[in-house]
Simulated assay, not measured.
Amino acid sequence: MIVPLLMTLYFSVIRYNLMQPGEHEFIGLMNYEFFVTDPSFSTAVGNTLLLLGSVIAITVVLGIAIALLVNEPFPGRGIVRVLLISPFFVMPTVNALLWKHMMMNPIYGVFAQISKAVGAQPIDWLTDYPLFSVIVMVAWQWLPFAILIFITALQSMNREQLEAARMDGANAVQQFRFLVLPHLSRAIAVVVMIEMIFLLSVFAEIFTTTGGGPGDASTNIAFLIFKQALLNFDVGVASAGALFAVLLANVAAVFLIRMVGKNLER
């Protein structure tokens, strides 16, 4: 772990472009300045934060709702739980291809067929709503993880408290607000922390479907680093961007670990 990090740090302070072979002179923080002044940088940061916040919000809200639905006994509950968790084991590239061709294709996709069936004009999702399309793909894959964590948390809940609340006249909303939601606070903190760390590096879905476009509409930090490294052949700037991403991920991780720690102390 240390050797690649040190090499990235070294590359980030030298002039290292694969299209310009020769001596790699020391240039200090110029690569960092070039990366943060890239016209796509502010858009990429905004898209990263929007992707992060949207996916976390979707997975937490829907994860709790679905976990509550499948927590109570019903025929076939085991099969339903397996089906709910299975999307998490689909590789990101396969996930992106499924949504790109099977669901969102404007000619033969499922959404296009539904639109035609109701007399509406099919939408080219990846062109008209590129970032929203990526958010849907990523949320679909991470939703099973949230469901699994919340189901596990609900199974450890004290049933006697719920029964006592029902006997005291508490309705379903009151039970959820004052008993279930506080009980799920630790699970929610864990889901948010883990998802935030991993979602900062979303790449496969963007590369496979939108290519960061149209323009920079769906470019995030990870894809911007890719463009600098492999499309512009600038190893130095890409290394500076990679260290920026590492710093961003560590800041988020420290903040969330403290938040989880405070929850555990309650």
Results as ranks from 00 to 15, higher is better:
233 F>D: 12
37 T>K: 10
107 I>Q: 00
224 L>I: 02
44 A>M: 13
245 A>N: 05
91 M>V: 14
209 T>P: 14
47 N>G: 08
51 L>N: 08
86 S>Y: 15
135 I>C: 01
113 Q>H: 03
117 A>K: 10
209 T>K: 13
229 A>M: 13
190 V>C: 10
208 T>M: 15
124 D>A: 11
12 S>E: 08
245 A>W: 01
252 A>P: 06
255 F>T: 01
109 G>F: 08
265 E>H: 13
56 I>P: 03
87 P>N: 05
83 L>W: 13
40 S>W: 07
136 V>G: 01
104 M>D: 05
61 V>G: 04
260 V>Q: 09
264 L>M: 08
122 P>H: 10
173 V>M: 11
197 I>V: 10
35 F>W: 02
37 T>R: 11
41 F>I: 00
100 K>E: 12
224 L>F: 04
246 V>A: 11
255 F>S: 07
194 I>R: 00
162 L>M: 05
190 V>H: 06
60 V>I: 10
16 Y>I: 07
19 M>V: 11
113 Q>N: 15
99 W>H: 03
211 G>Q: 06
238 A>W: 04
224 L>M: 08
153 A>M: 02
112 A>W: 12
159 R>F: 03
199 L>I: 15
48 T>C: 12
231 L>E: 07
57 A>F: 09
188 I>M: 13
1 M>N: 05
253 A>G: 04
167 M>I: 10
24 H>G: 10
202 V>T: 11
85 I>S: 02
258 R>Q: 14
238 A>M: 04
194 I>A: 02
132 F>Y: 12
213 G>F: 13
63 G>P: 07
54 S>A: 08
238 A>R: 01
257 I>D: 00
117 A>I: 12
237 V>K: 06
236 G>L: 03
18 L>A: 12
112 A>K: 01
197 I>N: 02
176 F>V: 13
22 G>R: 00
85 I>R: 03
175 Q>N: 09
37 T>D: 09
53 G>V: 01
29 L>A: 05
239 S>K: 00
78 G>K: 00
80 V>P: 05
1 M>T: 02
109 G>C: 07
43 T>W: 14
135 I>S: 01
182 P>S: 04
4 P>F: 09
42 S>C: 13
88 F>A: 00
108 Y>K: 07
217 A>P: 07
233 F>L: 10
54 S>D: 10
17 N>K: 01
79 I>S: 15
226 F>Y: 11
66 I>D: 05
179 L>R: 07
160 E>C: 04
40 S>I: 08
40 S>N: 04
173 V>F: 12
226 F>G: 06
59 T>K: 10
257 I>V: 04
232 N>K: 05
202 V>D: 11
248 L>I: 03
107 I>F: 07
43 T>M: 14
203 F>V: 07
77 R>W: 06
150 F>G: 02
70 V>A: 06
95 N>P: 04
98 L>A: 09
168 D>F: 02
153 A>I: 02
247 L>E: 00
246 V>E: 01
174 Q>Y: 01
222 A>K: 04
134 V>L: 04
